[in-house]
């Protein structure tokens, strides 16, 4: 069994997640399933859609992640054989594979063609966010970035509010602003947090807005908390229409030296999981270097990087003066 530098960092910083998953052997089986499924879905897309296989976000994610692993060549042809691994038996690792099974049942080609009902994709997304392995991943991230140090927090694209709930369950921030473009998600978040959508009176504000760059949203945010101590980005960058512009606007909301707490799936991470998640409406896929270039261009300075891609990109960045 060989270990890369990122594997060592994952063991060092993400030990809780790996322990819960049954140890490195079980987690590796789960990750191998993710790769195996990615190859299966890419093969199906190539067969059905030909040269258009990577012209949708699912195909693009599969192409980039399998290419990064040397499993396919530049033309998308398989150059490395991937065997079906043994099934993990640990409950958390097993349910990670089950998520892939459920997505597979929808049919990768149907998803890529946009033929799968939105409600079905939303159920699958909600299922993922409710699974135990995801909860452990979320909690481990919050531990790692020391969320308890930050009193005024803003979370873009909060989706259904599980991350906000996890933060509020363990920590009493003075102000927590969560926003999302989707009215259903805003309602779900507000309901989970015991708040009213678009009412920013208490400690929690859940706002429906596609971006924090607009003058109205910016004004609400500033009135709500003044300057924020931290921006929480947990698998968020790929939902943003224009991530660079959004990051610059978020930086403007931070106090000098405020932090950006980043966890982001990248193409070098689990390929099948990335493909599943981007199918829920992502607009971009990133390599870990793309993430760093983006944060740098937006005016942040890297304070500490925990992992590059295994199990995903994790770092703390500081708003440059």
């Amino acid at each position: 069994m060989s270990f890369s530098w990122d594997d060592v960092n994952a063991l060092r910083h993400y030990g809780k997640f790996i322990k819960a998953g049954g140890g490195i052997g079980e987690v590796r089986k789960a990750l191998a399933w993710s790769t195996w499924y990615a190859v299966k879905w890419w093969s199906e897309l190539k067969h059905e859609l030909g040269i258009d296989a990577d012209r949708n976000i699912l195909g693009k994610a599969l192409f980039m992640s399998l290419r990064a692993r040397g499993i396919i060549d530049d033309g998308g042809r398989l150059v490395k054989r991937v065997e079906a691994p043994p099934r993990p038996v640990n409950p958390y690792s097993a349910e990670f594979v089950e998520l892939h099974d459920s997505f597979d049942a929808l049919g990768a080609v149907e998803v890529a063609k946009g033929a799968v009902d939105r409600d079905k994709l939303r159920i699958l997304y909600s299922s993922m966010l409710a699974q135990g392995w995801y909860d452990v991943m979320r909690e481990t991230f919050l531990d790692l970035v020391e969320i308890g140090r930050y009193l005024n927090i803003v979370e873009p694209h909060c989706k259904e509010g599980q991350l906000a709930y996890a933060v509020l369950r363990r920590h009493q921030p003075e102000r927590y602003l969560a926003y999302d473009p989707d009215p259903d998600d805003v309602e779900a978040t507000a309901s989970l947090l015991g708040a009213s959508p678009n009412v920013c009176a208490g400690k929690v504000c859940v706002l429906q807005t596609p971006t924090i760059c607009g003058p109205a949203a910016r004004e609400v945010a500033s009135k709500f908390a003044g300057a924020f101590d931290a921006v929480l980005l947990f698998h968020t960058l790929y939902w943003m229409g224009d991530p660079l512009a959004e990051l610059r606007c978020l930086k403007a909301l931070l106090r000098p030296g405020g932090r950006l707490l980043v966890g982001q799936q990248v193409v070098e991470s689990t390929p099948g999981l990335l493909a599943v998640v981007v199918s829920f409406g992502a607009k971009h896929v990133f390599r870990w270097r793309d993430v760093e270039a983006l944060l740098d261009a937006a005016g942040f300075e890297k304070e500490r990087r925990y992992t590059r891609y295994s199990p995903y990109y994790i770092a703390v960045w500081r708003a440059a003066q």
């Binding site: 349910e95 089950e98 099974d101 459920s102 049942a105 299922s127 699974q131």
Partner: peptide, 10 residues
């Protein structure tokens, strides 16, 4: 729909 979309443990 329930059994195909929601993973078994969930």
């Amino acid at each position: 729909t329930f059994s195909s979309l929601v993973p078994p443990s969930l």
